[in-house]
Amino acid sequence: MPPKGVLSSVSLEIFFNLNAYYLALFMVAEILLVVYKAEVLPYPGNNIALDVVILFLLGIVELIMIFMGSKGNLTEHVMATAISLASLLPSIGLTLYFLLLQTYVLRVDVVLCGVLLALHGLELLFLFIAVCTFSRVPT
């Protein structure tokens, strides 16, 4: 049986690293925007708590997706990559909440969420390719 070559995707790993840095920027920007909206706009108290909880939930889901995807990609493990692919879907849903459903959506929110959704779209494509590639090769 011939030895298999390296199957991990450099492009996917680059997007995971880029997403990790962008996630930090996104979280700080959204926290500052929630503080700004609470001070300037007539923001109901329950909605502030909801937005903050969903923001931290998004951060946790993103960290799981990045960690599992990076580990799955580097070790060429199908299950870890599939878990990352599965956790990408709630992450997209939570990002869409910040883009469409939060109490006040500012233009900066639209830009931040648009960039994050573009990253998610590219990661979705590369994760799907990685899962297909890893599952085809016998262990």
Rank of each mutant, 00 (worst) to 15 (best):
A24K: 12
L25C: 04
V108D: 08
S9P: 09
P42L: 01
I64D: 03
E13D: 15
V108W: 12
M65A: 13
E30S: 12
V115F: 15
L116D: 09
L89F: 12
I31Y: 03
L119Y: 14
H120F: 13
I83H: 05
Y21G: 14
Y43C: 04
Y22T: 04
L57T: 13
I83N: 05
E13Y: 03
L119K: 09
L50T: 05
K71M: 13
F15W: 04
Y22R: 07
S91F: 04
G5Y: 01
S11T: 08
T75I: 02
L106A: 08
F26N: 04
T103H: 15
T139P: 15
L74M: 11
Y36Q: 02
L88Y: 02
L32K: 03
E30T: 11
L116P: 00
K71D: 07
L116I: 00
G5D: 00
S70F: 06
V111A: 15
Y22S: 09
F15S: 06
L33F: 10
I14G: 09
I48Y: 07
L101H: 12
I48F: 11
L106M: 13
M27Y: 10
V131I: 05
K37I: 04
L117G: 10
A38I: 08
L125W: 12
M79W: 11
R107F: 15
T81E: 03
F126C: 00
L12E: 06
Q102I: 06
L12Y: 06
V115P: 07
S87R: 00
L12D: 04
Y22C: 09
F56N: 06
G72P: 02
E62F: 06
Y36P: 00
L18H: 01
L96W: 03
P44W: 11
R107M: 11
L7Q: 05
V137G: 00
N47S: 07
G45V: 14
M65G: 12
A80I: 08
H77N: 15
L119F: 15
T139E: 11
D109V: 00
A24C: 04
I129Y: 08
L124K: 06
V35L: 14
N46P: 01
V110F: 09
V52W: 08
A38D: 07
S87T: 14
L116R: 11
T75Y: 03
V6W: 01
L99Y: 13
L124V: 01
K71E: 10
A82P: 00
L101M: 12
L18Y: 02
G93M: 07
L89I: 10
P138N: 04
A82C: 00
E62D: 14
Y21H: 08
F15P: 00
D51N: 14
F26K: 00
P138W: 09
Q102Y: 05
E30N: 05
Y21E: 12
Y21K: 10
G114W: 12
E30D: 01
L96D: 01
L32H: 02
P138A: 02
P90G: 00
V111F: 15
L94S: 06
V53C: 06
E62A: 15
L119H: 08
I54M: 15
